[in-house]
Design a protein around this nucleic acid. Structure first.
Lengths: 238, 238
DNA sequence: AGTTGGATGACAATTACATGACACCCCTTC
DNA sequence: GAAGGGGTGTCATGTAATTGTCATCCAACT
């Protein structure tokens, strides 16, 4: 099972957005809307990481963070603080209350996911694969390199994130809307057809001659990374 | 596993800041907030180095340091004293109580890390590589010298730290933000583009004609020390 | 055949990075 | 304390990569 995330956030829409995207990445998500609730939940079960809103009813995020640090069970629990812009200016403030990282709202979903991954990699390396491999394709998040059959490919940033996202859940079909959310970020106002174009570009970038296309178009639904491709034994060491 | 550090510090935010940065550098960190607690912890396990606050509840840093020196198990344990801004008298007293080094608050994170490394190098050389080598580049932390293909180069302090940091994790891509934190220090408010400029300066300094550029720009992500370069057998002894 | 949805090449706008210039330190050295 | 010198951070400019949109073409379904 994926790493467990506890979201502490009172704005329902934001909470749902986070939940949705984290679940799509394979995390097991739990969420509460009040600080005091969170404290109780944390006594029941310690997750692998906490996303914590700065401003909360019941018990402020700052105070909750302090308490998390104060208890030995959660002393080293990774915490990412979500703060509104400008509200409490500097990074130091956030980090010095004991958060491990901190992100300013509004933030882009891919950005947040990257930070969650980065933090988990530091604390629970086993949970987070730095290298995604499927068939003869390798995507290395740490070095930002993509190889097919051992040969390095050049992808633009968006193509990289798109491939990364698709490879995360081989076989699963994502709608264009979903892809826009996950790869571009939630607040973007981009035409859905643009996804087609980027998928096209991605295909062009990763498809060597006489190799199968790993990206599957599902008419009327969206795209997916082909899981049969992923499972095949493409002579990786040829 | 990395060297073990014990932090003895009662100011929570400072302690967390230290922990955060030391862990990011691969140290195994343990921390206590009281002097007497520290003494107990030291009986359980002797770390590789201690960061010790001057003013402490329970048992002052000075006294604790004396006791550390008095016990044979910890007689030679490296200690860095953290003191509030004060006069030279502090320095004398700090060192004469047996601290190996001392640093005045507020200090920059890279500065502290450098001292920790320096001290560990003296006592546990095995833990700390003093010489970073990659391809035909050598960086000597001790002498602060950098050579390329045997030829000595001149780098400014910032360029040196930047190269040092990048060479520490060849291949890994660091965002500008991350680099600012790691190379400049946590509390700086510097434009991210400044990183570009320094990378440019570093490149100019280390790139001899008709040699490949070891620093890779990853569009939309950051910079990295090129691990393929690092692995190549550049005729080091030519 | 008609209709709908996806692929693709072209294009213009935007963005991100590289670089040279410059103003400011903070030293050292007269 | 004035005059250099090195080192830094910021900015303006140039350049190349990336991106979003469109128009058009093609394939799949009815």
């Amino acid at each position: 099972m994926g790493p467990r995330v506890l979201i502490v956030e009172d704005e329902e829409p934001l909470m749902l957005l986070l939940r949705y995207n984290l679940e799509a990445e394979g995390y097991e998500v739990d969420s509460v809307s009040r600080g005091d609730e969170a404290e109780i939940r944390l006594r029941e079960q310690v997750p692998d990481i906490v996303l914590l809103d700065w401003m909360l009813p019941g018990l402020s995020g700052i105070e909750l963070c302090r308490r998390i640090r104060a208890r030995s069970e959660t002393e080293r629990l990774p915490v990412i603080m979500l703060t509104a812009r400008g509200e409490e200016g500097d990074r130091i403030r956030g980090l010095s209350t004991g958060a491990d990282d901190y992100i300013v709202k509004p933030f882009s979903v891919p950005e947040l996911l990257a930070r969650v991954r980065a933090l988990l990699r530091r604390t629970k390396p086993a949970h987070i694969a730095t290298l995604l491999r499927a068939g003869d394709i390798e995507l290395d998040r740490e070095t930002h390199r993509v190889r097919r059959a051992g040969q390095e490919l050049h992808l633009g940033p968006t193509e990289f994130r798109l491939l990364e996202f698709l490879m995360q859940s081989p076989g699963r079909v994502f709608s264009r809307e979903h892809l826009l959310n996950a790869v571009w970020g939630h607040d973007v106002y981009i035409d859905e057809r643009t996804v087609d174009v980027h998928v096209g570009r991605l295909r062009k970038a990763i498809n060597l001659p006489r190799k199968p296309d790993p990206i599957r178009t599902v008419r009327g639904a969206g795209y997916s990374f082909d899981e049969t491709f992923a499972r095949e034994e493409h002579a990786l060491e040829a």
